[in-house]
C-alpha cells in the first residue's frame, strides 16, 4: 500500500526545527558567559542564538556547535566546551572554575 502523501511533493513550513538533527553532530557547545554583543545572533547559521529581553539567548537543540559565535563575540563572552567530557570529568570552563 502506497503511503498517503500530498499530491504536490511539499513539506510543512518550519518543520525541520521540530526535529533538528544537527544538534547530535555537536562536538563542542557554546556556553554563554557574559556576551553582550547582540550581533553574534546574526552570525549563527542555525538560528540557535536569539535575543531575549535584550540579551543573547541560546537554544542548544538547534546548535551544531560550529563555534562561530565564540569566535565572533567581541568580549570573549562565549566559550566552546567539549560535549564529551572525558573520563576525568568535566573540563573546567574558563571563568567558571
Amino acid at each position: 500500500m502506497a503511503k498517503n502523501l500530498p499530491i504536490v511533493p511539499t513539506a510543512k513550513p518550519g518543520s525541520m526545527a521540530e526535529t533538528p538533527a544537527g544538534s547530535t553532530w555537536r562536538e563542542k557547545r557554546p556556553v554563554l558567559m557574559n556576551c553582550t554583543c547582540l550581533e553574534v545572533t546574526l552570525y549563527c547559521p542555525d538560528g540557535a542564538l536569539s535575543i531575549v529581553e535584550g540579551k543573547v539567548s541560546l537554544d542548544l537543540n538547534l546548535c551544531k556547535g560550529c563555534g562561530i559565535c565564540a569566535n565572533e563575540c567581541k568580549d570573549g563572552g562565549i566559550q566552546m566546551v567539549p560535549e564529551y567530557t572525558g573520563a576525568q570529568g568535566v573540563f573546567p570552563v574558563k571563568g567558571e572554575e
Partner: peptide
C-alpha cells in the same frame, strides 16, 4: 539596528546544512 530586526526566524532553524554554513548565515 539590531533591536529593530524581527525576532521571527523565517529560515534556518533545524536546517540540514553542515555546521558553520556560510550559505545558511
Amino acid at each position: 539596528r539590531i533591536e529593530d530586526l524581527p525576532k521571527e526566524e523565517l529560515f534556518g532553524q533545524g536546517n540540514g546544512g553542515c555546521k558553520a554554513c556560510g550559505a545558511a548565515i
